[in-house]
Deep mutational scan, measured.
Amino acid sequence: NQASVVANTLIPINTALTLVMMRSEVVTPVGIPAEDIPRLVSMTVNRAVPLGTTLMPDMVKGYA
């Protein structure tokens, strides 16, 4: 099973992502692959992402 990116904290809308905000976890449904974490750093989220939420491609500006 592939690990996905999961919010390690509440990420407010329009926040630039940092490494400490994200962790990898095997979850269903599958979200952004964990190997993309380095690429996500400094990208911003377009909605509030609660703790434990899987990051989906449409949640990160410029990812999809």
Rank of each mutant, 00 (worst) to 15 (best):
2 Q>L: 11
3 A>M: 14
3 A>P: 09
3 A>K: 14
4 S>Y: 03
4 S>N: 02
4 S>I: 02
4 S>T: 04
5 V>K: 02
6 V>F: 02
6 V>L: 08
6 V>E: 00
7 A>K: 02
7 A>H: 01
7 A>I: 04
8 N>K: 08
8 N>Y: 05
10 L>H: 13
12 P>D: 07
12 P>N: 15
12 P>V: 05
13 I>G: 09
14 N>P: 01
14 N>H: 14
15 T>Q: 11
15 T>W: 06
15 T>H: 08
15 T>N: 05
15 T>Y: 08
16 A>Q: 15
16 A>P: 11
16 A>S: 10
18 T>K: 07
18 T>W: 03
18 T>Q: 08
19 L>G: 07
19 L>F: 11
19 L>C: 05
20 V>Y: 07
20 V>P: 12
21 M>V: 05
21 M>Q: 08
22 M>Q: 00
22 M>W: 02
23 R>D: 05
23 R>M: 06
23 R>V: 13
24 S>D: 08
25 E>G: 10
25 E>K: 09
26 V>P: 08
26 V>E: 07
26 V>C: 04
26 V>S: 08
27 V>F: 02
28 T>P: 00
28 T>R: 08
29 P>T: 04
29 P>W: 03
31 G>K: 02
32 I>L: 09
32 I>N: 00
33 P>Q: 06
34 A>T: 07
37 I>D: 00
39 R>K: 08
40 L>D: 00
41 V>M: 09
41 V>I: 11
41 V>S: 04
42 S>V: 03
42 S>D: 09
43 M>F: 08
43 M>H: 08
44 T>H: 11
46 N>E: 08
47 R>K: 12
47 R>C: 05
47 R>D: 11
49 V>Y: 02
49 V>E: 01
49 V>W: 03
49 V>Q: 02
49 V>M: 05
50 P>D: 14
51 L>I: 11
54 T>V: 10
55 L>C: 02
55 L>K: 00
55 L>M: 12
56 M>I: 08
58 D>K: 07
59 M>H: 07
59 M>L: 06
60 V>T: 01
61 K>N: 15
61 K>L: 12
62 G>M: 09
62 G>L: 08
62 G>T: 12
64 A>V: 11
